[in-house]
Design a protein around this nucleic acid. Structure first.
Length: 734
DNA sequence: AGCACGCCGACT
DNA sequence: GTCGGCGTGCTC
C-alpha cells in the first residue's frame, strides 16, 4: 500500500474524536493547509469541518476512508497555534472537538458559507492616467466616463461603486489597465480612511503609573489588577493596549456580557483609533464575521469583545485583558462550558504575552493565585479624583415594620437624599411584582406546573410567571383550590417597590432597571443615558444596575434584601453576596459628594457580613479563603460536575449511579465523589435533574480520569434516557 | 445531534 | 394488509 495522505478533520458532531478523510479529487498536499475548512460527507449528509492535520496513517485501521468534497478556504482560518489551543480546550473541558471549533467560528463560516470579503479591490488612476484628457476618448465613451469618475476619487473606487454608474465595467477597466492608466489595489473596506488616534497623553496617577510599569509586555505574566470602582482600571488597560499596539502587536480586551456598552466602545475607539474591532452579540452576522476576519488577519490591532472573543485567532497577540474577571458571564453555561477568563491565562502563556485580570472584587480563585505568587498583584488604592469608598452601614430589620421591603429608616434616608437634590439608588435582586401569591383562606400557593418553584406575580395586573422555565399564566381572582377570592401577594419585586416609591415620592423621577424594562435592544443604554442627564432622581433595579455603570450624583445606595446570599445552598453564595454588595456600593459617590450605603439585614451580627462592612472586601476574602482551605473547597481543590436531567424521574439517578460506580473504579481513590444527589431545584421545565460532583486536590487527578470516564458514559444505555453534561470547574451548582 | 433501520399497535 | 411509534446503532 503506497503512502497515503490522510486529512484529520474536526467535524461538528457530539463525538469526542476526529474523523479521517482522503483528500478531495485533484487536491494535492500544497493546497491542504491545516486550519482551512473542509466540506466532508458525514453519515448520510454533508458537514463543514476544520482540517487539523495531515497524516500518513489513519486513526483506525481496516476501513475505507471517504473522500472529502472540497476545501472551502484559500487560506487557513486558524494557525497551528490556534488549532492547538482549541484542541487543548476541548480536551480540558471534555467537549467534542468539532463543536469547540463550531463555537470558535462565526455562524456563516460554521455553516460552510464562503468567507465575507474583508479586502475590497479598489481602482484608481495612475499618474499617467490622470494626465489623460477624457474628451480625447470620443470613440470610447465608457472609458472616458470611468476616467472622469476616478479623477474625482483620489482614494479609488471599488468595482461595485463603478458599476453603479457604468453597468459592466470590468472589460473597460481591463482596457484602461493595459494602457497603464489605472491600477487595482486591495484594501480593507473599513480602514479606507484611517484617522489617526488621538495622541493626547492622559495623566495617570501614581498607582496607575506603577501598575502600568509593573507589566512586562515582552513575556508571559498574569497580573491581578485589583482596584476599587472608580480607581481607573480602564485607563491602565488603555495605556497598556496603546503600548502594545505601538509595538505592532494586538491587544485582546474581554468584558462581561453587560459591560460592552456604547460608551466603552467609543472610549476605546477614541483612544486607540480605527483599528478597534468589536465582537459582540448585537452585531449582525456579516458584520460580526468581518470583525472576526479583521482580527484574524491582524488588520485590527485591538479586539474588544465578550466571552467568545477569546476564541478569535489573533496572529500578533501582545496583551490580554479580562475586565471584571470575577464576572460569571465568562463561564459559558451550556454546550462548550469553557471559562474565557481561565482560557485567557492559557492563551497568554502560549502567546508569551501578559494577561491582566481586573476587578474590584476578585474571585477567590484569582486572589489565591495572587497570594501564592503565581500572579503578580497590582493594586490601585485611590479612587481617581480622590473619591472615598462610600461607608457601609447595616440596617437591622428584625421586627421592623417594612413597607414594600423598605424600613422606615431607609425611606427617611431616601427622602433626605432627594430633598438635598441628590439621586438615590435602591437595589433589589428580584424582578416582577411579588415572588409569592397565596390564598389567605386555605394557604394555597401559586406554583409552576413544570418546576419545583413558586411563580412570580408580574405587573400587578395579574400574570404569573415562572422565572425558571418562562411559563406564564393568568392569575384567577379565585383560589383554584378552595374558590375563595382572597388571594394575596407576599414579598416584593422591583415592580412593587417602584409602585410604592411612586406613592411615597410622587415628585421624584423614578426609573426601574431590570430584565423586563431592558428587554429591547438599546433600551438599557437609553435609560442609563436618562440617569446621567439627571432625568431621574430615584433609581431602582436588579443587579443589572450594579455592573459597570457609575452614577456620580447618587449619594445613597440602599440594598433591600441581602440575606439570601448568607445562607445559600452553594458554598460560593457568600462570595457572590460580598461581590454584589461591593459592586453596588461602588456605583455611588465622588470626591465632593461622598456616597453612603445602607444594607438591610435580619442577620446584622453575621460574622462574614460584619467583616465585609467594617473591613472591606479584602478582609472578607481572606476569611472566606481560610474557610475554603479548611474545608478543602476550591480554589484549594478542583471540581467537575456531572449533570443529568430527564422527564422521567428515575432516569437521571439511574444514569448517575452507573457513572458513580465506574468513576470510583477508574479513579483509584485520589478523587472524591459526592452524590448522586438531586439538583437544588429538582424539577425544572418539566425535567428532573440530578448531579454527581467530583473533587480532587490536583487538576491532573481529574484530567487523568475524565477521557476514559466520559467515553464510558457516552456508551451507557442509561445515558440515552437523559440529557447529561460535564462541567469542568463548575461555577454554579444548579 | 441527526438519521435510518427495525420490530410491534390501530387504521383505511 | 400498511402507517408509524420510538429503541438502537452509526457517523471517518
Amino acid at each position: 500500500m503506497p503512502d497515503q495522505l490522510i486529512l484529520r478533520v474536526a467535524v461538528p458532531a457530539p463525538l469526542y474524536h476526529c474523523f479521517d478523510y482522503l483528500p478531495p479529487k485533484g487536491v494535492g498536499e500544497t493546497d491542504l493547509l491545516p486550519g482551512v475548512r473542509v466540506s466532508v460527507p458525514f453519515g448520510r449528509g454533508d458537514r463543514c469541518g476544520v482540517l487539523l492535520e495531515l497524516l500518513h496513517a489513519p486513526r483506525i485501521e481496516g476501513r475505507t476512508l471517504k473522500r472529502a468534497h472540497s476545501i472551502l478556504d484559500d487560506q487557513p482560518l486558524f494557525r497551528p497555534a490556534d488549532l492547538e489551543l482549541l484542541v487543548w480546550a476541548g480536551r480540558y473541558y471534555q467537549h467534542p472537538v468539532g463543536e469547540v471549533f463550531a463555537n470558535a467560528l462565526p455562524v456563516r463560516l460554521r455553516k460552510g458559507q464562503p468567507p465575507v470579503p474583508v479586502l475590497n479591490t479598489f481602482w484608481k488612476l495612475t499618474p499617467l492616467g490622470s494626465r489623460q484628457e477624457p474628451v480625447t476618448l470620443k470613440r470610447a465613451p465608457k472609458q472616458a466616463q470611468l476616467l472622469r469618475l476616478l479623477a474625482e476619487a483620489p482614494d479609488g473606487l471599488t468595482q461595485n461603486q463603478l458599476s453603479s454608474h457604468i453597468g459592466n465595467c470590468l472589460p473597460v477597466l481591463q482596457a484602461l489597465m493595459r494602457k497603464e492608466w489605472v491600477v487595482a489595489f486591495e484594501q480593507s473596506a473599513s480602514l479606507t480612511a484611517p484617522s489617526a488616534a488621538t495622541s493626547a497623553t492622559y495623566r495617570l496617577n501614581t498607582d496607575q503609573r506603577q501598575a502600568v510599569d509593573a507589566v512586562d509586555l515582552e513575556c508571559f505574566g498574569a497580573y491581578l489588577l485589583d482596584g476599587v470602582t472608580g480607581s481607573g482600571k480602564t485607563e491602565v488597560y488603555l495605556t497598556l493596549a496603546r503600548r502594545v499596539v505601538n509595538a505592532g502587536k494586538q491587544a485582546l480586551i474581554l468584558v462581561p456580557e453587560i459591560g460592552l456598552t456604547p460608551q466603552l466602545i467609543r472610549r476605546f475607539e477614541r483612544r486607540l483609533g480605527q483599528g478597534v474591532a468589536v465582537l459582540h452579540s448585537g452585531l449582525g452576522e456579516r458584520e460580526r464575521e468581518r470583525a472576526w476576519h479583521m482580527a484574524r488577519l491582524g488588520h485590527a490591532s485591538v479586539v474588544l469583545g465578550t466571552r467568545s472573543a477569546l476564541l478569535t485567532p489573533l496572529p500578533r497577540l501582545g496583551l490580554v485583558v479580562v475586565d471584571e474577571e470575577h464576572d460569571l458571564s465568562y463561564k459559558q453555561q451550556d454546550g462548550f462550558r469553557y471559562s474565557a477568563r481561565d482560557l485567557a491565562v492559557i492563551l497568554s502563556q502560549r502567546s508569551d504575552c501578559p494577561v491582566i485580570l481586573g476587578s474590584a472584587t476578585p474571585s477567590l480563585e484569582t486572589l489565591q493565585n495572587a497570594r501564592s505568587g503565581r500572579y503578580h498583584h497590582l493594586q490601585l488604592t485611590n479612587r481617581a479624583g480622590d473619591a472615598k469608598q462610600s461607608p457601609m452601614n447595616l440596617l437591622d430589620i428584625r421586627s421592623v415594620r417594612l413597607e414594600a421591603g423598605m424600613s422606615p429608616v431607609l425611606i427617611e434616608k431616601v427622602r433626605e437624599t432627594l430633598n438635598e437634590g441628590n439621586q438615590a439608588l435602591l437595589f433589589i435582586n428580584r424582578r416582577g411584582y411579588a415572588p409569592i401569591v397565596t390564598c389567605h383562606d386555605c394557604g394555597w400557593v401559586a406554583e409552576c406546573r413544570r418546576c419545583d418553584a413558586r411563580m412570580t406575580l408580574h405587573s400587578a395586573s395579574g400574570i404569573l410567571w415562572c422565572h425558571h422555565c418562562g411559563s406564564q399564566r393568568r392569575l384567577d381572582p379565585n383560589c383554584p383550590e378552595c374558590g375563595a377570592d382572597d388571594l394575596r401577594s407576599l414579598g416584593q419585586g422591583t415592580e412593587r417597590v417602584e409602585e410604592v416609591l411612586a406613592q411615597l415620592f410622587p415628585e421624584a423621577g423614578i426609573v426601574r432597571i431590570d430584565r423586563d424594562t431592558t428587554r429591547r435592544k438599546g433600551s438599557l443604554d437609553k435609560l442609563l443615558e436618562g440617569i446621567r442627564k439627571g432625568k431621574y432622581s430615584l433609581l431602582l433595579g436588579t443587579q443589572m444596575l450594579a455592573k459597570g455603570h457609575h452614577f456620580p450624583d447618587v449619594t445613597l445606595v440602599g440594598i433591600l434584601d441581602v440575606d439570601q446570599g448568607l445562607f445559600g445552598a452553594d458554598y460560593r453564595a457568600a462570595e457572590r453576596m460580598a461581590q454584589q454588595i461591593i459592586q453596588v456600593s461602588g456605583r455611588a459617590g465622588r470626591a465632593e459628594k461622598p456616597g453612603r450605603v445602607l444594607i438591610q439585614t435580619r442577620h446584622p451580627d453575621h460574622p462574614m457580613m460584619q467583616l465585609l462592612i467594617k473591613h472591606g472586601y479584602k478582609a472578607f476574602a481572606e476569611e472566606a479563603l481560610a474557610e475554603r482551605q479548611a474545608a478543602a473547597f476550591p480554589p484549594f481543590s478542583y471540581q467537575v460536575l456531572l449533570r443529568a436531567e430527564a422527564p422521567l424521574e428515575s432516569a437521571p439517578r439511574a444514569f448517575l449511579d452507573e457513572a458513580y460506580e465506574q468513576g470510583v473504579a477508574l479513579a483509584s481513590g485520589r478523587v472524591e465523589f459526592w452524590g448522586p444527589v438531586p439538583a437544588p431545584m429538582e424539577r425544572r421545565a418539566g425535567r428532573y435533574r440530578a448531579h454527581l460532583l467530583l473533587q480532587a486536590n490536583q487538576r491532573s487527578e481529574l484530567q487523568r480520569l475524565l477521557p476514559q470516564w466520559v467515553g464510558f458514559l457516552a456508551g451507557l444505555k442509561s445515558a440515552r434516557r437523559v440529557r447529561w453534561s460535564i462541567d469542568v470547574d463548575p461555577q454554579e451548582m444548579f
